[in-house]
């Protein structure tokens, strides 16, 4: 039998090819596929009107379907509708993306870096990784934001933490009465509010260690080698971490006294 001509397999558009960790082919949700079916046979004006519907509208055009359509119209060479659909997708997500770079000196650059990766994945699907955008858009977008955040974090160390590492006491011989049980029980709503307020009072590593302990319940030290501890992460002895937590406590007690009495 003759083999198929090479150009037959050189398709511009191809089905999802990425597989999950279990080897199962990624699939769009049935409601996304149904929206794509409907969208493909609409006139451009009607499609744009649909895409502009708000998220709370029951007929909201899902991001996963929008990603598919942007790619499809781009590949068809339809610039107008590609641009308009792209802008709708960007406008939907701009506040969320930008909020993740809150206070960065290069927040605009970080935001644009996310957009660039996002649309590279939409257009080229990056060896299948962009397939996730048609299956779980929000999750994949957050993963892109995380990558960019980590790249830009170092440039913004100062904005994220004005309390530099060297400012912190490293003394090993100070007494500590840090209560180990704090953070191990579920936080009350009042505690949560207090910690959220405390974020602005504390800075730098002191803020980070306090939040990791109080809000996320990370241990100072552990005999379990798999336990992610503050001591390991900061590369400091448990006693130093306790001292930091004591310093944080003192600052917060003072702040609480001044603001809540």
């Amino acid at each position: 039998m003759e083999s198929a001509p090479a150009e037959l397999s050189g398709s511009n558009l191809s089905p999802l090819i990425h597989r999950d960790k279990e080897g199962v082919l990624l699939k769009r949700a049935p409601d996304v596929d149904a929206q794509i079916h409907d969208a493909l046979v609409l006139a451009p004006a009607a499609l744009l009107k649909w895409a502009e519907k708000e998220a709370q509208d029951p007929e909201f055009l899902k991001d996963e379907a929008l990603v598919f359509l942007i790619r499809a119209f781009h590949k068809s060479g339809n610039k107008d509708i590609t641009n308009q659909l792209s802008e709708i997708l960007i406008r939907r997500w701009t506040p969320f993306i930008y909020s993740k770079f809150n206070g960065f000196v290069d927040a605009d650059d970080a935001f644009c870096a996310v957009i660039k990766i996002l649309f590279t994945h939409i257009l080229f699907r990056d060896n299948g990784r962009g397939d996730f955008l048609q299956v779980k858009f929000g999750l994949h977008l957050k993963r892109i934001i995380m990558s960019v955040f980590r790249t830009h974090r170092d440039k913004n160390e100062k904005e994220l933490s004005t309390f530099t590492f060297s400012d912190l006491s490293n003394e090993e011989d100070e007494d500590t009465d840090w209560d180990e049980s704090i953070g191990s029980e579920e936080l009350s709503p009042e505690d949560s509010v207090f910690i959220d307020e405390a974020i602005d009072v504390l800075t730098g590593d002191l803020q980070e260690v306090y939040i990791l302990r109080r809000k996320y319940d990370f241990q100072i030290e552990s005999i379990d080698p798999n336990e992610p501890t503050l001591s390991k992460y900061f590369g400091k002895t448990p006693r130093t971490i306790r001292n930091w937590l004591n310093q944080a406590d003192e600052i917060l007690k003072k702040w609480q006294g001044e603001n809540h009495e």
């Binding site: 406008r91 993740k100 927040a107 990791l212 996320y216």
Partner: peptide
Amino acid sequence: IQMEEASSANHGKPDIDHLVLKAM
């Protein structure tokens, strides 16, 4: 965690139209 905490801080409202233009 740092990213989640940073996004909860209030740094004023961004100019969405300006950002959309840059993104486009």
